[in-house]
Design a protein around this nucleic acid. Sequence first.
RNA 1: GGCGGUAUCGUCUAGAGGCCUAGGACGUGGCCCUCUCAAGGCCAAAACACGGGUUCGAAUCCCGUUACCGCUACCA
Length: 429
Amino acid sequence: MIRVRFAPSPTGSLHVGGARTALFNWLLVQAARRRGEDAVFVLRIEDTDKERSTDEYTRVILDGMSWLGLTYDEGPLFQAEGIERHRADAERLLASGKAYEDAGAIRFKVPQEEIAWDDLVHGPISFHGKDIEDFVILRADRTPVYNFAVVSDDIAMRITHVIRGDDHISNTPKQIVLYRALGVEPPAFGHVPMILGTDGKKLSKRHGATAVADYQHEGILPQAMVNFLALLGWSPGGDRELFFSLDELVGAFSLAGIQKKAAVFDPQKLAWMNAEHLRNMGPERVASLVADRVDGLPQQRVRELVAAVLPRSRTPQDVAAAVRVRAGLDVPQLDEKASAYVAKDPAAYRQALGVVVEALTPFDDWTPASLEAQLRRVAEAHGLKAGQVMQPIRIALTGSTVSEPVNELLAIVGKVGALSRLKAAAGAA
RNA sequence: GGCGGUAUCGUCUAGAGGCCUAGGACGUGGCCCUCUCAAGGCCAAAACACGGGUUCGAAUCCCGUUACCGCUACCA
Protein backbone atom coordinates (compact mmCIF):
# COMPACT_ATOMS: atom_id res chain seq x y z
CA MET A 1 0.00 0.00 0.00
CA ILE A 2 1.47 3.33 -0.95
CA ARG A 3 0.05 6.72 -0.24
CA VAL A 4 1.66 9.75 -1.82
CA ARG A 5 0.73 13.40 -1.74
CA PHE A 6 1.22 16.48 -3.81
CA ALA A 7 1.29 19.63 -1.68
CA PRO A 8 1.35 22.85 -3.69
CA SER A 9 1.12 26.31 -2.19
CA PRO A 10 -1.78 28.35 -3.50
CA THR A 11 0.18 31.10 -5.18
CA GLY A 12 -2.16 31.89 -8.01
CA SER A 13 -0.56 29.62 -10.57
CA LEU A 14 0.56 26.05 -11.05
CA HIS A 15 4.28 26.37 -11.68
CA VAL A 16 5.85 23.94 -14.14
CA GLY A 17 8.09 22.67 -11.34
CA GLY A 18 5.06 21.93 -9.21
CA ALA A 19 3.28 20.35 -12.13
CA ARG A 20 6.21 18.05 -12.68
CA THR A 21 6.34 17.04 -9.04
CA ALA A 22 2.63 16.31 -9.25
CA LEU A 23 3.26 14.28 -12.40
CA PHE A 24 5.98 12.17 -10.79
CA ASN A 25 3.77 11.44 -7.79
CA TRP A 26 0.88 10.59 -10.05
CA LEU A 27 3.03 8.36 -12.23
CA LEU A 28 4.34 6.55 -9.17
CA VAL A 29 0.79 5.79 -8.07
CA GLN A 30 -0.36 4.67 -11.51
CA ALA A 31 2.67 2.46 -12.01
CA ALA A 32 2.05 0.83 -8.63
CA ARG A 33 -1.55 0.18 -9.54
CA ARG A 34 -0.52 -1.38 -12.77
CA ARG A 35 1.57 -3.80 -10.73
CA GLY A 36 -1.53 -4.63 -8.74
CA GLU A 37 -0.63 -2.65 -5.64
CA ASP A 38 -2.95 -0.40 -3.70
CA ALA A 39 -1.95 3.20 -4.26
CA VAL A 40 -3.53 6.50 -3.31
CA PHE A 41 -2.77 10.02 -4.45
CA VAL A 42 -3.66 12.71 -1.94
CA LEU A 43 -3.84 16.40 -2.76
CA ARG A 44 -2.92 18.71 0.08
CA ILE A 45 -2.94 22.49 -0.21
CA GLU A 46 -0.43 24.45 1.81
CA ASP A 47 -2.72 27.35 2.52
CA THR A 48 -1.29 29.15 5.51
CA ASP A 49 -1.30 32.70 4.30
CA LYS A 50 -4.63 34.19 5.30
CA GLU A 51 -4.15 37.15 3.00
CA ARG A 52 -4.56 35.04 -0.08
CA SER A 53 -7.89 34.07 -1.49
CA THR A 54 -7.45 30.37 -1.12
CA ASP A 55 -10.50 29.17 -2.99
CA GLU A 56 -9.60 30.98 -6.14
CA TYR A 57 -5.94 29.98 -5.95
CA THR A 58 -6.80 26.39 -5.24
CA ARG A 59 -9.03 26.43 -8.29
CA VAL A 60 -6.04 27.36 -10.43
CA ILE A 61 -4.11 24.34 -9.18
CA LEU A 62 -7.04 22.02 -9.71
CA ASP A 63 -7.58 23.36 -13.21
CA GLY A 64 -3.93 22.91 -14.10
CA MET A 65 -3.90 19.35 -12.87
CA SER A 66 -7.07 18.43 -14.66
CA TRP A 67 -5.79 20.00 -17.87
CA LEU A 68 -2.75 17.75 -17.61
CA GLY A 69 -4.93 14.77 -16.81
CA LEU A 70 -3.59 14.27 -13.30
CA THR A 71 -6.33 12.92 -11.08
CA TYR A 72 -6.23 12.59 -7.31
CA ASP A 73 -8.01 10.23 -4.98
CA GLU A 74 -8.31 12.20 -1.77
CA GLY A 75 -8.53 15.88 -1.01
CA PRO A 76 -7.97 18.61 -1.52
CA LEU A 77 -7.04 18.80 2.14
CA PHE A 78 -5.99 22.13 3.54
CA GLN A 79 -3.12 22.74 5.87
CA ALA A 80 -5.07 25.44 7.69
CA GLU A 81 -7.79 22.95 8.57
CA GLY A 82 -5.38 20.94 10.67
CA ILE A 83 -4.41 23.75 12.99
CA GLU A 84 -5.97 22.21 16.12
CA ARG A 85 -4.07 18.99 15.53
CA HIS A 86 -0.87 20.95 14.92
CA ARG A 87 -1.31 22.69 18.25
CA ALA A 88 -2.10 19.46 20.05
CA ASP A 89 0.97 17.80 18.54
CA ALA A 90 3.11 20.73 19.61
CA GLU A 91 1.72 20.54 23.14
CA ARG A 92 2.54 16.86 23.22
CA LEU A 93 6.16 17.53 22.33
CA LEU A 94 6.26 20.26 24.93
CA ALA A 95 4.80 17.98 27.60
CA SER A 96 7.25 15.20 26.83
CA GLY A 97 10.19 17.59 27.03
CA LYS A 98 11.09 17.25 23.34
CA ALA A 99 10.29 20.90 22.79
CA TYR A 100 10.46 23.99 24.91
CA GLU A 101 8.95 27.41 25.16
CA ASP A 102 10.91 30.32 23.83
CA ALA A 103 9.55 33.87 23.85
CA GLY A 104 6.00 32.60 23.55
CA ALA A 105 6.78 30.22 20.72
CA ILE A 106 7.43 26.49 20.97
CA ARG A 107 10.82 25.40 19.78
CA PHE A 108 11.84 21.84 18.97
CA LYS A 109 14.94 20.46 20.62
CA VAL A 110 16.97 18.82 17.86
CA PRO A 111 18.59 15.56 19.04
CA GLN A 112 22.39 15.62 18.82
CA GLU A 113 22.71 12.55 16.68
CA GLU A 114 23.17 11.31 13.15
CA ILE A 115 20.03 11.80 11.08
CA ALA A 116 20.03 9.74 7.91
CA TRP A 117 17.71 8.30 5.31
CA ASP A 118 17.95 6.40 2.09
CA ASP A 119 16.66 8.84 -0.46
CA LEU A 120 14.61 7.31 -3.27
CA VAL A 121 16.56 9.24 -5.87
CA HIS A 122 19.83 10.23 -4.22
CA GLY A 123 20.58 7.19 -2.14
CA PRO A 124 21.95 7.57 1.39
CA ILE A 125 21.99 11.11 2.76
CA SER A 126 22.92 12.05 6.27
CA PHE A 127 23.05 15.11 8.46
CA HIS A 128 24.09 15.59 12.03
CA GLY A 129 21.84 17.12 14.66
CA LYS A 130 24.60 19.46 15.79
CA ASP A 131 24.41 21.30 12.47
CA ILE A 132 20.72 21.99 12.84
CA GLU A 133 19.52 24.65 15.23
CA ASP A 134 16.51 24.12 17.43
CA PHE A 135 13.68 25.41 15.34
CA VAL A 136 10.29 26.91 16.04
CA ILE A 137 7.33 24.60 15.45
CA LEU A 138 4.57 26.79 16.82
CA ARG A 139 4.82 30.56 16.58
CA ALA A 140 3.96 32.89 19.41
CA ASP A 141 0.60 33.45 17.70
CA ARG A 142 -0.04 29.68 17.96
CA THR A 143 0.19 29.05 14.21
CA PRO A 144 2.39 26.16 13.07
CA VAL A 145 5.52 26.53 10.99
CA TYR A 146 5.73 24.66 7.68
CA ASN A 147 8.21 21.95 8.69
CA PHE A 148 5.99 21.00 11.59
CA ALA A 149 2.65 21.29 9.84
CA VAL A 150 3.70 19.03 6.96
CA VAL A 151 4.84 16.33 9.31
CA SER A 152 1.67 16.48 11.37
CA ASP A 153 -0.42 16.42 8.21
CA ASP A 154 1.53 13.69 6.47
CA ILE A 155 1.15 11.54 9.57
CA ALA A 156 -2.57 12.24 9.66
CA MET A 157 -2.84 11.36 5.97
CA ARG A 158 -0.74 8.22 6.53
CA ILE A 159 1.63 9.19 3.72
CA THR A 160 4.17 6.51 2.88
CA HIS A 161 6.24 8.23 0.17
CA VAL A 162 7.14 11.87 0.00
CA ILE A 163 8.26 12.88 -3.49
CA ARG A 164 9.17 16.58 -3.67
CA GLY A 165 11.72 19.04 -4.98
CA ASP A 166 15.43 18.99 -4.18
CA ASP A 167 15.07 22.27 -2.32
CA HIS A 168 13.54 20.25 0.51
CA ILE A 169 16.56 18.06 1.14
CA SER A 170 17.74 20.27 3.97
CA ASN A 171 14.28 20.22 5.54
CA THR A 172 14.16 16.45 5.59
CA PRO A 173 16.35 15.84 8.67
CA LYS A 174 14.19 18.27 10.63
CA GLN A 175 11.10 16.46 9.57
CA ILE A 176 12.57 13.06 10.33
CA VAL A 177 13.36 13.99 13.92
CA LEU A 178 9.86 15.38 14.24
CA TYR A 179 8.35 12.10 13.07
CA ARG A 180 10.41 10.22 15.64
CA ALA A 181 9.55 12.64 18.43
CA LEU A 182 5.92 12.11 17.54
CA GLY A 183 6.46 8.38 17.76
CA VAL A 184 5.95 7.69 14.08
CA GLU A 185 8.21 5.96 11.58
CA PRO A 186 9.12 8.49 8.85
CA PRO A 187 7.94 7.83 5.30
CA ALA A 188 10.30 7.19 2.39
CA PHE A 189 11.64 10.40 0.88
CA GLY A 190 12.57 11.05 -2.72
CA HIS A 191 13.92 14.38 -3.89
CA VAL A 192 13.52 15.19 -7.53
CA PRO A 193 15.75 17.71 -9.32
CA MET A 194 14.78 21.33 -9.68
CA ILE A 195 13.83 22.98 -12.95
CA LEU A 196 16.05 25.87 -14.02
CA GLY A 197 15.68 28.66 -16.56
CA THR A 198 17.97 28.85 -19.59
CA ASP A 199 20.44 30.92 -17.55
CA GLY A 200 20.82 28.11 -15.04
CA LYS A 201 18.92 29.98 -12.35
CA LYS A 202 15.81 28.71 -10.69
CA LEU A 203 12.90 29.11 -13.09
CA SER A 204 11.03 32.30 -12.27
CA LYS A 205 8.79 34.94 -13.83
CA ARG A 206 11.67 36.70 -15.44
CA HIS A 207 12.21 33.65 -17.62
CA GLY A 208 8.82 34.31 -19.16
CA ALA A 209 6.15 31.66 -18.95
CA THR A 210 6.49 29.52 -15.83
CA ALA A 211 2.91 28.47 -15.15
CA VAL A 212 1.29 25.59 -16.96
CA ALA A 213 -1.61 27.89 -17.79
CA ASP A 214 0.78 30.16 -19.70
CA TYR A 215 1.71 27.29 -21.96
CA GLN A 216 -1.88 26.23 -22.28
CA HIS A 217 -2.68 29.68 -23.65
CA GLU A 218 0.27 29.57 -26.00
CA GLY A 219 -1.20 26.52 -27.64
CA ILE A 220 0.83 23.82 -25.97
CA LEU A 221 -1.09 20.57 -25.93
CA PRO A 222 -1.50 18.93 -22.53
CA GLN A 223 -0.04 15.67 -23.84
CA ALA A 224 3.02 17.57 -25.06
CA MET A 225 3.40 19.40 -21.77
CA VAL A 226 3.22 16.17 -19.81
CA ASN A 227 5.64 14.44 -22.15
CA PHE A 228 8.10 17.30 -21.90
CA LEU A 229 7.84 17.68 -18.14
CA ALA A 230 8.27 13.96 -17.58
CA LEU A 231 11.52 14.04 -19.50
CA LEU A 232 12.87 16.94 -17.46
CA GLY A 233 14.67 15.08 -14.75
CA TRP A 234 13.57 11.62 -15.72
CA SER A 235 14.50 9.25 -18.48
CA PRO A 236 13.08 5.87 -19.42
CA GLY A 237 16.58 4.77 -20.37
CA GLY A 238 17.48 4.37 -24.00
CA ASP A 239 16.55 6.74 -26.77
CA ARG A 240 12.79 6.91 -26.52
CA GLU A 241 11.40 10.36 -25.84
CA LEU A 242 8.02 10.68 -27.46
CA PHE A 243 5.13 9.47 -25.33
CA PHE A 244 1.81 10.26 -26.89
CA SER A 245 -0.31 9.44 -23.87
CA LEU A 246 -0.22 9.33 -20.12
CA ASP A 247 -0.81 5.64 -20.45
CA GLU A 248 2.43 5.07 -22.35
CA LEU A 249 4.23 7.14 -19.76
CA VAL A 250 2.87 5.07 -16.90
CA GLY A 251 4.15 1.96 -18.59
CA ALA A 252 7.65 3.34 -18.87
CA PHE A 253 7.87 5.15 -15.54
CA SER A 254 10.08 4.15 -12.68
CA LEU A 255 11.73 6.03 -9.83
CA ALA A 256 15.03 4.55 -10.97
CA GLY A 257 15.07 6.80 -14.03
CA ILE A 258 14.89 10.02 -12.05
CA GLN A 259 17.88 12.25 -12.46
CA LYS A 260 19.90 13.73 -9.60
CA LYS A 261 20.83 16.93 -11.32
CA ALA A 262 18.72 19.99 -11.98
CA ALA A 263 17.38 20.38 -15.52
CA VAL A 264 17.10 23.47 -17.68
CA PHE A 265 13.69 24.16 -19.17
CA ASP A 266 14.12 24.53 -22.93
CA PRO A 267 11.07 26.15 -24.56
CA GLN A 268 12.38 25.30 -28.03
CA LYS A 269 12.29 21.62 -27.37
CA LEU A 270 8.82 21.99 -25.92
CA ALA A 271 7.71 23.71 -29.13
CA TRP A 272 9.15 20.89 -31.22
CA MET A 273 7.52 18.28 -29.05
CA ASN A 274 4.22 20.09 -29.32
CA ALA A 275 4.42 19.94 -33.11
CA GLU A 276 5.11 16.22 -32.89
CA HIS A 277 2.07 15.70 -30.71
CA LEU A 278 -0.07 17.88 -32.92
CA ARG A 279 0.81 15.89 -36.02
CA ASN A 280 0.38 12.66 -34.16
CA MET A 281 -3.22 13.62 -33.43
CA GLY A 282 -4.00 13.64 -37.13
CA PRO A 283 -6.32 15.94 -39.12
CA GLU A 284 -9.48 14.48 -37.66
CA ARG A 285 -8.75 15.22 -34.02
CA VAL A 286 -7.00 18.50 -34.73
CA ALA A 287 -10.05 19.57 -36.72
CA SER A 288 -12.26 19.08 -33.69
CA LEU A 289 -9.71 20.94 -31.61
CA VAL A 290 -10.06 24.06 -33.76
CA ALA A 291 -13.75 23.56 -34.57
CA ASP A 292 -14.79 26.56 -32.50
CA ARG A 293 -12.43 28.87 -34.36
CA VAL A 294 -13.63 28.26 -37.90
CA ASP A 295 -17.02 29.94 -37.88
CA GLY A 296 -19.11 26.89 -38.63
CA LEU A 297 -17.42 25.67 -41.77
CA PRO A 298 -18.61 22.18 -42.71
CA GLN A 299 -16.74 19.48 -40.80
CA GLN A 300 -15.47 17.78 -43.91
CA ARG A 301 -14.13 21.08 -45.25
CA VAL A 302 -12.34 21.81 -41.97
CA ARG A 303 -10.80 18.38 -42.00
CA GLU A 304 -9.30 18.76 -45.48
CA LEU A 305 -8.04 22.24 -44.70
CA VAL A 306 -6.43 20.99 -41.49
CA ALA A 307 -4.82 18.12 -43.35
CA ALA A 308 -3.31 20.57 -45.82
CA VAL A 309 -1.94 22.80 -43.12
CA LEU A 310 -0.90 20.39 -40.38
CA PRO A 311 2.66 19.56 -41.48
CA ARG A 312 3.72 23.18 -41.11
CA SER A 313 1.92 23.92 -37.86
CA ARG A 314 3.22 23.77 -34.33
CA THR A 315 0.15 24.83 -32.39
CA PRO A 316 -3.63 24.76 -32.77
CA GLN A 317 -3.41 28.53 -33.20
CA ASP A 318 -1.18 28.06 -36.25
CA VAL A 319 -3.66 25.59 -37.64
CA ALA A 320 -6.67 27.78 -37.02
CA ALA A 321 -5.08 30.84 -38.59
CA ALA A 322 -3.95 28.93 -41.67
CA VAL A 323 -7.31 27.26 -42.06
CA ARG A 324 -9.20 30.54 -41.74
CA VAL A 325 -7.17 32.33 -44.37
CA ARG A 326 -7.51 29.42 -46.80
CA ALA A 327 -11.24 29.23 -46.21
CA GLY A 328 -11.61 32.93 -46.96
CA LEU A 329 -12.64 33.74 -43.39
CA ASP A 330 -9.71 36.09 -42.95
CA VAL A 331 -8.03 38.37 -45.46
CA PRO A 332 -4.35 37.50 -45.79
CA GLN A 333 -2.10 39.87 -43.86
CA LEU A 334 1.36 40.06 -45.36
CA ASP A 335 4.03 39.12 -42.87
CA GLU A 336 7.45 40.71 -42.83
CA LYS A 337 9.08 38.45 -45.40
CA ALA A 338 6.10 38.59 -47.69
CA SER A 339 6.03 42.38 -47.57
CA ALA A 340 9.73 42.49 -48.34
CA TYR A 341 9.23 40.19 -51.30
CA VAL A 342 6.52 42.40 -52.75
CA ALA A 343 8.38 45.61 -51.99
CA LYS A 344 11.43 44.39 -53.84
CA ASP A 345 9.61 44.58 -57.15
CA PRO A 346 5.92 45.50 -56.90
CA ALA A 347 5.46 45.67 -60.66
CA ALA A 348 6.77 42.17 -61.22
CA TYR A 349 4.57 40.89 -58.40
CA ARG A 350 1.49 42.49 -59.91
CA GLN A 351 2.37 41.37 -63.40
CA ALA A 352 2.90 37.78 -62.31
CA LEU A 353 -0.48 37.73 -60.62
CA GLY A 354 -2.02 39.28 -63.70
CA VAL A 355 -0.86 36.56 -66.03
CA VAL A 356 -1.86 33.91 -63.53
CA VAL A 357 -5.36 35.28 -63.29
CA GLU A 358 -5.59 35.42 -67.04
CA ALA A 359 -4.41 31.85 -67.45
CA LEU A 360 -6.43 30.38 -64.62
CA THR A 361 -9.77 32.07 -65.26
CA PRO A 362 -10.67 29.82 -68.19
CA PHE A 363 -8.98 26.84 -66.56
CA ASP A 364 -11.36 24.30 -65.11
CA ASP A 365 -9.35 21.21 -64.34
CA TRP A 366 -8.77 22.44 -60.78
CA THR A 367 -6.65 19.58 -59.49
CA PRO A 368 -3.16 19.75 -58.04
CA ALA A 369 -1.56 17.91 -60.93
CA SER A 370 -3.20 19.96 -63.67
CA LEU A 371 -2.66 23.21 -61.85
CA GLU A 372 1.01 22.40 -61.52
CA ALA A 373 1.32 21.78 -65.26
CA GLN A 374 -0.70 24.85 -66.14
CA LEU A 375 1.34 27.10 -63.89
CA ARG A 376 4.55 25.87 -65.42
CA ARG A 377 3.23 26.53 -68.88
CA VAL A 378 2.31 30.05 -67.86
CA ALA A 379 5.74 30.68 -66.41
CA GLU A 380 7.47 29.40 -69.48
CA ALA A 381 5.25 31.33 -71.87
CA HIS A 382 6.17 34.56 -70.13
CA GLY A 383 9.82 33.77 -69.69
CA LEU A 384 9.52 33.50 -65.96
CA LYS A 385 10.95 30.98 -63.55
CA ALA A 386 8.46 28.81 -61.75
CA GLY A 387 9.21 30.55 -58.49
CA GLN A 388 8.46 33.95 -59.96
CA VAL A 389 4.94 32.76 -60.58
CA MET A 390 4.46 30.54 -57.57
CA GLN A 391 5.69 32.80 -54.83
CA PRO A 392 3.37 35.72 -55.70
CA ILE A 393 0.43 33.33 -55.65
CA ARG A 394 1.49 31.98 -52.28
CA ILE A 395 1.81 35.46 -50.85
CA ALA A 396 -1.47 36.69 -52.31
CA LEU A 397 -3.32 33.68 -50.97
CA THR A 398 -1.76 33.32 -47.54
CA GLY A 399 0.24 36.46 -46.77
CA SER A 400 3.17 34.21 -46.05
CA THR A 401 6.27 33.05 -47.90
CA VAL A 402 5.82 29.58 -46.47
CA SER A 403 3.04 27.15 -47.27
CA GLU A 404 2.20 23.86 -48.85
CA PRO A 405 3.16 23.65 -52.58
CA VAL A 406 1.29 26.30 -54.54
CA ASN A 407 -0.63 23.87 -56.75
CA GLU A 408 -1.97 22.18 -53.65
CA LEU A 409 -2.69 25.53 -52.10
CA LEU A 410 -4.78 26.60 -55.10
CA ALA A 411 -6.62 23.31 -55.05
CA ILE A 412 -7.50 23.51 -51.38
CA VAL A 413 -8.57 27.16 -51.57
CA GLY A 414 -10.77 26.46 -54.58
CA LYS A 415 -11.10 28.24 -57.89
CA VAL A 416 -13.60 30.93 -56.99
CA GLY A 417 -11.90 32.02 -53.80
CA ALA A 418 -8.43 31.83 -55.25
CA LEU A 419 -9.21 33.89 -58.34
CA SER A 420 -10.97 36.66 -56.48
CA ARG A 421 -8.09 36.86 -54.01
CA LEU A 422 -5.54 36.84 -56.81
CA LYS A 423 -7.36 39.56 -58.72
CA ALA A 424 -7.60 41.75 -55.67
CA ALA A 425 -3.92 41.36 -54.99
CA ALA A 426 -2.97 42.04 -58.61
CA GLY A 427 -4.88 45.27 -58.56
CA ALA A 428 -3.81 46.45 -55.15
CA ALA A 429 -0.11 45.80 -55.04
C1' G B 1 30.81 30.91 6.88
C1' G B 2 28.45 25.97 8.33
C1' C B 3 25.76 21.84 6.53
C1' G B 4 23.78 19.26 2.38
C1' G B 5 23.20 18.20 -2.83
C1' U B 6 25.02 18.02 -7.95
C1' A B 7 28.71 17.64 -11.99
C1' U B 8 28.54 13.65 -19.99
C1' C B 9 27.75 18.02 -26.40
C1' G B 10 24.76 25.09 -25.80
C1' U B 11 20.14 22.19 -23.79
C1' C B 12 17.36 17.34 -22.43
C1' U B 13 19.77 12.82 -21.92
C1' A B 14 21.91 7.21 -22.98
C1' G B 15 25.77 5.07 -20.29
C1' A B 16 25.32 1.20 -14.02
C1' G B 17 34.42 -1.24 -15.24
C1' G B 18 35.93 -3.51 -21.11
C1' C B 19 30.21 -3.22 -26.02
C1' C B 20 32.66 4.27 -25.94
C1' U B 21 36.60 6.22 -31.83
C1' A B 22 30.98 8.22 -25.79
C1' G B 23 24.87 6.98 -28.60
C1' G B 24 19.97 9.64 -29.34
C1' A B 25 16.95 14.19 -29.28
C1' C B 26 16.23 19.76 -29.40
C1' G B 27 18.88 23.74 -31.26
C1' U B 28 22.89 25.25 -34.82
C1' G B 29 25.52 24.79 -39.79
C1' G B 30 25.64 22.41 -44.62
C1' C B 31 23.67 19.36 -48.57
C1' C B 32 19.42 17.00 -51.11
C1' C B 33 14.31 17.54 -52.57
C1' U B 34 12.17 21.94 -54.55
C1' C B 35 7.95 27.14 -56.46
C1' U B 36 8.62 28.39 -50.44
C1' C B 37 9.94 25.91 -45.56
C1' A B 38 8.14 26.09 -39.87
C1' A B 39 7.61 19.74 -43.98
C1' G B 40 10.70 15.32 -45.48
C1' G B 41 15.76 12.93 -46.33
C1' C B 42 21.15 13.00 -45.55
C1' C B 43 25.64 14.96 -43.32
C1' A B 44 28.57 17.96 -39.87
C1' A B 45 30.37 20.64 -35.61
C1' A B 46 29.58 19.83 -30.44
C1' A B 47 30.57 16.72 -24.03
C1' C B 48 32.72 12.67 -19.87
C1' A B 49 34.77 19.92 -14.79
C1' C B 50 40.01 19.26 -12.77
C1' G B 51 43.67 16.34 -9.97
C1' G B 52 44.90 12.04 -7.54
C1' G B 53 43.98 7.00 -6.53
C1' U B 54 41.74 1.60 -7.07
C1' U B 55 42.06 -1.78 -11.38
C1' C B 56 45.08 -5.48 -16.58
C1' G B 57 41.31 -1.72 -17.88
C1' A B 58 37.22 4.10 -15.44
C1' A B 59 32.55 8.53 -18.20
C1' U B 60 31.31 4.56 -14.87
C1' C B 61 34.26 2.95 -8.06
C1' C B 62 37.05 6.01 -3.94
C1' C B 63 39.35 10.69 -2.23
C1' G B 64 40.40 15.80 -2.91
C1' U B 65 39.78 20.47 -5.61
C1' U B 66 36.72 23.68 -8.28
C1' A B 67 32.04 25.38 -9.86
C1' C B 68 26.90 25.64 -9.38
C1' C B 69 22.44 24.99 -6.46
C1' G B 70 19.71 24.46 -1.78
C1' C B 71 19.02 25.02 3.51
C1' U B 72 20.90 27.79 7.51
C1' A B 73 13.55 32.42 9.26
C1' C B 74 8.36 32.76 14.70
C1' C B 75 8.65 31.70 4.79
C1' A B 76 6.55 27.66 2.34
